[in-house]
Design a binder for these strands. Structure first.
Lengths: 121, 121
DNA sequence: CTGCATCCTCCCCGATACTG
DNA sequence: CAGTATCGGGGAGGATGCAG
């Protein structure tokens, strides 16, 4: 608690913690690809353009650790591993989609504003 | 366009571009502090815990460049600079608040899942 | 008070090679 | 196919000093 009129963004508030998770560039995209249902590793890699194997593994591990994704390993030859959003993971989809919608609508304006700003240098 | 059944997250889609902006840890927090109205530089710095002067300047410049924040310089002694959300900037508040709400509700669960995962090592 | 420049450190992430 | 290990470059970002 604080005596300030506006509740500040202190270091360990929930918002900050979430930002640490979605700020790594890949988390949001991976969650997005899993919207339609479970996918295997290679399929996710294919859909998220530019993600390296290392980063994808790292991201999926983090999501699994946070209880947002389940990892199912089928001990076959060749190996098959499927990832699926948990209940908690699915609740994250809605606010993420809201952001995505905002981006779709406004990013063009943002980009043109950027050009205008740069031109005015 | 693509012939794949699921529209992939290609490198330059709006979502990716937005992620580049909010992925820097400070943008979201700064926009959040400006929700209540215009603020001066030092006041924002005070409310966003842990932001360095350098990063705050950098973040505000980026937001100004993107047309999400206006910068008003009052040539007084001592100088006073106020920052305020633009119309576009205000539209960003809603999806951001949705994320904030999600964090408030779910981060405790995420944290405990994290502990459980770490304990199971 | 606000902002810019410089230096310097750390760690993110990609490339590569190798296991089960 | 899925994952781990290692190395190295580059960029993010903190500390400090100075200007307007």
């Amino acid at each position: 608690m604080t005596d300030r009129p506006f509740d500040p963004y202190v270091r360990d508030c929930p918002t900050r913690q979430l930002l640490d998770r979605i700020g790594d560039r890949w988390t949001v995209l991976v969650v997005g690809t899993l919207t339609g249902g479970p996918l295997r590793f290679s399929e996710i890699a294919r859909r998220v353009d530019g993600v390296s194997q290392k980063m994808l593994t790292q991201t999926l591990r983090a999501l699994e650790r946070d209880g947002l994704v389940t990892r199912t390993h089928h001990p076959e030859i060749p190996p098959r591993v499927e990832y699926e959003l948990t209940e908690a993971g699915r609740t994250l989809q809605e606010p993420l989609r809201a952001l995505e919608d905002w981006a779709t609508v406004h990013m063009a304006g943002v980009l043109s504003a950027r050009e205008g700003y740069d031109a005015a240098v």
